[in-house]
Design a protein around this nucleic acid. Structure first.
Length: 457
RNA sequence: GGCGACGUAGCCAAGUGGCUUAAGGCGAGGGUCUGCAAAACCUUUAUUCGGCGGUUCGAAUCCGCCCGUCGCCUCCA
């Protein structure tokens, strides 16, 4: 039984999909810049959920959107003097490059707001017709007080929220708590025709419209960062449920924690301290980044520090080495190493609200068993195969980290051969000189069973 | 002010009433192996879970207070 924490009820609940296929919507990114490790965190968490649900036998249809019309995009495009579409195309592509680099599987659908404009306008129309929204001066607002359940996700009360901050009453709003679903066009902005005049969609409505279009009016899982709980997801719930009458819009609301940066501040784009995914991938393997993230539970706030990713890179080495063992012991003469109990621990941990730290602990315990089994001459092939499968569920590639040494594989092999000759003739000083040369170049070597293995640090 | 999260070894981080006299990883010390290393394995590194009280046969886990850190309250994954 899979249990997931539902932000809506604030408890862990048994996960049972509504239909044959798990319908999962995850809030994607606004495409106006390269993605940073905070986006990577969210992508990796929901990628692992996607993979794990499939591992447990579910079919999954994941939708992850791109917000490609919004103030930040328009401002950035204007600042750069490029057309909005050119900017958004560039960063959609950049997002995919980063995701691919992190071995995040593509969602089944990656819709863009501007491509689903008909559905967005249609949904707004339904809300206007139903009385929960109203148009005013070419804009359309959601009438928040028409929804008695408003605030159920964030635990907020409308009046208390309004007390906290002084709001400029936007002209045309009935109530300052109301939010825009359609914004009347200003000069020089991208705009679309609508029953209320030319304009563009507000932020929240696109997710409701795209979820409806690509998944249906009631979905199993809706995910995103914790920072989206209010107002974004609160508004999505209000709109979606008001339009469809299907309650709840999403059975499970899942929210990943926010990255912490080293000085204790929350990472945020507005602080300008984003750690770019592509530059991280130049330094570390995707596995190291994933391990660093997945060694914390997804609802906590992982600490972003270079040294912690470097530590994860060292940890990955153990797993990679064990995953490469198979050929050495394929004769399988000894007793097989037991691995089922580790798989059971892995599954039990993952079933419990995706407890990846515990699942990873089970993997490391199995790694130790395999090394011990290998040294004792046991048959480790099944256990190694198990390691490959379990690490695959977590999206590890078991590929080496990026090469920063500047030395080719052939050169390394050649030097190792040279060292072997020296060792065969017991010219230890010569052999050690070669080893020092390799270490200097960022290559570590290990002699075992008459063979020398090597890896890049 | 409202809503919420957190404080576990040098560092990261699970565990949330007895199965744990606290997983796993990184780091560090000792040992086995090795020409020497490395890797691997063995072993040591929290009698204790921010502090003080309370509930209980029993608490890191529940309750209260206090100290400290952080997030959200209409930009944000």
């Amino acid at each position: 039984m899979i249990q997931l924490y539902n932000s809506l009820t604030r408890t862990k609940e048994e996960f049972v999909p509504i239909g044959d296929e798990v319908k999962m919507y995850v809030c994607g990114v606004t495409v106006y810049d390269d993605s940073h490790l905070g986006h990577a965190l969210s992508s990796i968490v929901f990628d692992v959920l996607h993979r794990y649900l499939e591992y447990r036998g579910y079919r999954v249809r994941q939708v992850k959107n791109f917000t490609d019309v919004d103030d930040k995009i328009i401002n950035r495009a204007n600042a750069l003097g490029v057309p909005v579409e050119e900017l958004t195309d560039k960063y959609v592509e950049s997002f995919f490059e980063s995701s691919d680099g992190l071995n995040v599987r593509r969602a089944e659908v990656h819709p863009r707001a501007t491509e689903d404009m008909a559905e967005i306008i249609g949904l707004i129309q339904r809300l206007v017709d139903g009385g929960s929204a109203y148009s005013s001066n070419g804009s359309v607002y959601f009438r928040v007080r028409s929804d008695p359940a408003y605030g159920k996700l964030s635990g907020q009360n409308i009046d208390q929220m309004l007390e906290a901050t002084r709001h400029e009453m936007e002209s045309g709003k009935e109530d300052s708590a109301d939010f825009a679903m359609w914004k009347a066009a200003k000069p020089d902005e991208p705009s679309w025709g609508s029953p209320w005049g030319v304009g563009r969609p507000g932020w929240h409505i696109e997710c409701s419209a795209m979820a409806f279009k690509h998944l249906g009016e009631q979905i199993d899982i809706h995910g995103g960062g914790m920072d989206l709980i209010f107002p974004h997801h609160e508004n999505e719930i209000a709109q979606s449920e008001a339009a469809s009458g299907a309650v709840p819009f999403a059975r499970f609301w899942m929210h990943n924690g926010m990255l912490r940066i080293a000085d204790g501040q929350e990472m945020s784009k507005s602080l300008g301290n984003a750690f770019n995914v592509k530059s991280a991938l130049e330094e570390f393997s995707s596995d190291a980044i994933r391990l660093w993230i997945l060694q914390s539970h997804y609802r906590t706030n992982p600490l972003l520090e270079r040294e912690l990713i470097a530590a994860a890179e060292r940890s990955m080495r153990r797993i990679r080495m064990v995953a490469e063992i198979e050929s050495d012991t394929s004769d399988g003469t000894g007793e097989p190493v037991e691995f089922r109990e580790f798989e059971e621990r892995f599954t039990a941990a993952m079933d419990d609200d995706l407890n990846t730290p515990q699942a990873i602990a089970a993997i490391f315990d199995l790694v130790r068993e395999i090394f011990k089994g290998r040294d004792a001459g046991l048959d480790v092939s099944g256990a190694v195969e198990s390691i490959r499968e379990l690490t695959g569920v977590l999206g590890f590639t078991l590929q080496n980290p990026p090469d920063r040494s500047g030395i080719s594989d052939d050169d390394v092999e050649e030097l190792i051969q040279k060292r072997k000759e020296a060792r065969d003739n017991k010219r230890w000083d010569d052999a050690d000189a070669v080893r020092d040369q390799l270490i200097e170049a960022g290559i570590s070597i290990a002699d075992a069973d008459g063979k020398t293995s090597w890896w890049r640090d």
